[in-house]
Design a protein around this nucleic acid. Structure first.
Length: 424
RNA sequence: GGAGGGAUGGCUGAGCGGACGAAAGCGACGGUCUUGAAAACCGUAGCGCGAUGAGCGCCGGGGGUUCGAAUCCCUCUCCCUCCGCCA
């Protein structure tokens, strides 16, 4: 959520920056509603002041047994009460629409973000390793998974439907090993506090993180219980400190969490997204930070590096890309993606997306901190990043480390978990 | 799923229609005292809108009754106790 004051004071500037996202955003309606609201508020507050004074007077008169004077005043106030009621009604209507419009506005892109309407205009920041070279035609993870009997899409479809994963045998072990390894690494090497959160959340939580109201159609919802299934632990972790004033001495707070993630993926198709690439359910270890405003961008850089550590440990070729303005998620001011090489498709795929949301979520969730005992609470900044999504990592490991005989070499870092160096 | 009891400031907890933005205690902050600290004593202090003013709003959320609601009514959410069911 953007600060309404900022919109009011610099409407043209805000509009221009929002439009770099490539959406035809206009603030006219918001500005008009804000103006109307302020007018009515002025009027109704005046009436309420009058009412408060009279009510006090009535109380005093009754105590002094001046029933008749009190009675007169009560009759007089009846009219004002009605007027207040009608104005309050109008006001809540206006505020409802205003808040809804505000809640759907995306965050302002950061100055360092490349301005472009073309998603391929990302800036490659750095690469690690190089594309593997094969002396044989490399197979896709789908084919490898079938041969090794570690992935079973037909049976997953029987149980739940298309786009659900089913890992079997060493496949199941590998998936769990990745989760274990990543969680342990981030906790022990990079000092994140591990969290095992609920996998469902309420509407308030989904609103605070920015998922609601705009993206309601992308999440699974249990209407009987008013609960939403977790699409990313970012949402759950954002709400760890909702409606709290965090102690300044604790900042920056670094959390990581494993969760299964569920997404409806409504409206996504694509021949190339075969196998595990885009699922309704996948596993992810999430990194999350609450920081002071002035340190959030250096913390974003270190968060990206923390996620990169995992790919380096697993010896997978990847690149880090700064996304252009048109490719930013609604709550993000700046996003850096990590993309791994997928040989069978001859292209890179995102396995991590690290974003600074500045105070966008903090404002929605009322998450603040206090610099000193006596100072005013301020909104803090929230950052999130995958560290990493296992399902796509699983694909990268299979395809990048495959051998001529269709076996797959297990990266050193995972061998202790699997008790074997090779999937075959 | 059934039956009850709750939700008040950083915390504990009183208030149950008018002098209440809210007693009291603890904690916090400032001061006095002290070589320093503790104790004691004195003082300050909630959050939001608004201009650091006036004013308005906020006692779990939403709605209602009333001239006036922390207080009465309806509804939702959450927590606790008991019964039932269950990994």
């Amino acid at each position: 959520m953007l600060d309404l004051k900022l919109i009011r004071d610099h409407p043209k500037e805000v509009e221009r920056r929002l439009r770099t996202r490539g959406e035809p955003i206009t603030l006219d309606r918001i500005l008009k509603l804000d103006e109307e609201r302020r007018q009515i508020v002025g009027h109704v507050e005046q009436l309420k002041a009058q009412r408060n004074k009279a009510s006090e007077e009535i109380g005093r008169l009754k105590r002094e047994q001046k029933e008749r004077d009190a009675e007169n005043l009560i009759v007089e106030m009846g009219k004002i009460a009605e007027e207040i009621k009608s104005l309050d009604g109008k006001l809540s209507q206006i505020e409802h629409e205003l808040n809804d419009l505000l809640a759907r506005l995306p965050n302002l892109p950061h100055a360092s973000v490349p301005v472009s309407g073309n998603k391929s205009d990302k800036k490659i920041l750095r690469e690690f390793g190089r594309k593997p070279e094969f002396s044989f035609p490399p197979k896709s993870h789908v084919e490898l998974g079938e041969r090794l009997k570690i992935l079973d899409f037909p049976r997953a479809a029987r149980i739940a439907g298309s786009r659900f994963p089913l890992y079997r045998g060493l496949g199941a072990m590998l998936e769990m090993a990745l989760v274990q390894f990543m969680l342990r690494y981030q906790v022990q090497q990079n000092n994140y506090i591990p969290i095992f959160p609920p996998f469902l959340g309420n509407a308030e939580s989904f609103f605070a993180a920015g998922q609601l109201p705009k993206f309601a159609d992308q999440v699974y919802f249990c209407p009987e219980d008013h609960l939403y299934l977790n699409p990313t632990a970012e949402i759950l972790l954002t709400n760890l400190h909702r409606d709290e004033i965090v102690d300044d001495a604790e900042l920056p707070l670094k959390y990581c969490a494993y969760t299964a993630c569920f997404r409806r993926e409504a409206g996504t198709y694509g021949e190339e997204e075969k196998g595990l690439i885009r699922m309704h359910q996948f596993n992810k270890v999430e990194l999350f930070k609450f920081t002071r405003p002035e340190e959030s961008y250096t913390e974003l850089d270190s968060l990206v590096e923390d996620a990169e550590d995992i790919l380096k440990e697993l010896k997978i070729h990847y690149r880090a890309a700064l996304l252009p303005s048109c490719d930013l998620g609604q709550q993000s001011t700046k996003t850096i993606d990590l993309e791994v090489w997928i040989p069978s498709q001859n292209r890179y795929y995102e396995v991590s997306s690290c974003s600074n949301c500045e105070d966008f979520q903090a404002r929605r969730g009322n998450i603040r901190f206090r610099r000193a005992k006596t100072s005013k609470p301020e909104y803090l900044h929230t950052l999130n990043g995958s560290g990493l999504a296992t399902s796509r990592l699983f694909v990268a490991i299979l395809e990048n480390h495959q051998q001529p005989d269709s076996s797959v070499l297990v990266p050193e870092a995972l061998r202790d978990y699997l008790k074997t160096g090779r999937l075959q």
